[in-house]
């Protein structure tokens, strides 16, 4: 006697599958709605400076004077843009060679010591909160610079140093992964030809891992670009382009942090801050796309 293939009449597993699918779909939908609304709200607020307050985009991007509550109100954001770019690029310039050397040390020179000691150190550096970096920068680096260089010690130099330590873990981790993923034969071939370790690193390892290293550097720049409080604490917050690295300056994030609480929602001065936020967000997207482009290149 042939009994039906499905033993139970009720199929609890079908309901179960349905619940699982709906639940996970709901979660991912929440994530997508969140990102879409972030983009939408920041963009609509940021663009209102141009559409509602009729500020010229070019004036905002190239203007040198920031006086949103002055008469007439001036919305020159170039000092902030300059500050953001110069601190994050400088930070990357300091952190990139350090990170590469740390990676070489961990993979090529002392793998055992590196994994047991340097690796955890780097991970701990990544875990320290940014306000703590800011505090140490303010109480160690700034006074130090004040003693050595003319000025108050605050400025782009102090900001970049703090940022460089903050992004060092990002750069080092990616460089380490890239070096570890190199095929063994590649290096052995070079050693077999009589090249020294440094020659091998310089001629073989560096060029082959370059796209991956660049990925790490761009990720580091992106992180430095978006960092707010640590930079704000050591940069001085003067809204103009400084004439030296040791002179008070400002970044997009520091301007937003400082003034957002002191301006009323909906005013031109407040909208202008949202425009700075929009620039920040657009730069983030650009960094993400550069990283993706680099990742695709390093796969080939």
């Amino acid at each position: 006697m042939a009994q039906p293939l499905d033993r139970q009449k009720a199929k609890p597993h079908l309901a179960e599958e349905w619940v699982g699918k709906i639940y996970t779909l709901f979660c991912i939908a929440f994530l997508i709605i969140t990102i879409i609304s972030i983009v939408y709200f920041v963009a609509s607020k940021g663009l209102s400076t141009f559409f509602k307050n009729h500020v010229n985009v070019l004036d905002l991007l190239t203007g040198l004077k920031w006086a949103p509550e002055g008469e007439p109100a001036l919305f020159g954001a170039l000092p902030f843009i300059f500050g953001s770019f110069s601190t994050s690029l400088l930070a990357a310039a300091i952190a990139a060679p350090l990170g590469f050397c740390a990676a070489v040390f961990m993979i090529e020179i002392a793998p055992k010591f590196g994994r047991q000691f340097l690796q955890p150190v780097i991970e701990l550096l990544a875990g320290i909160p940014s306000v703590v970096y800011g505090f140490v920068g303010l109480s160690v680096i700034v006074p130090l610079f004040r003693d050595i260089f003319p000025g108050q010690g605050v400025g782009i130099a102090a900001g970049s140093i703090v940022l460089s330590i903050m992004i060092l873990p990002t750069i080092t981790t990616i460089a380490t992964d890239a070096l570890a993923a190199l095929p063994k034969g590649l290096k052995e071939g070079s050693y077999a030809l009589g090249a020294t370790r440094w020659q091998t690193i310089y001629r073989i390892v560096l060029p082959t891992t370059l796209p991956a290293l660049m990925t790490g550097i761009v990720l580091g720049i992106a992180r430095a670009f978006g960092e707010a409080l640590a930079v704000q604490m050591v940069i001085g917050n003067a809204p103009h382009i400084p004439s030296s690295l040791f002179e008070s300056a400002s970044t997009l994030t520091s301007a937003i942090t400082l003034s957002m609480g002191n301006t009323a929602m909906g005013t031109a001065a407040n909208n202008a801050l949202w425009s700075l936020g929009l620039i920040l967000m657009i730069m983030t997207f650009i960094f993400v796309f550069i990283v993706r482009w680099l990742e695709r290149r390093s796969k080939i």
Binding site: I35, G226, E227, T253
Partner: peptide
């Protein structure tokens, strides 16, 4: 998801 993970936290705060 990747974009969201790289949005600066200050932007998240503004949002």
């Amino acid at each position: 998801v990747e974009v969201l993970s790289s949005v600066p936290s200050i932007i998240v705060g503004l949002f």
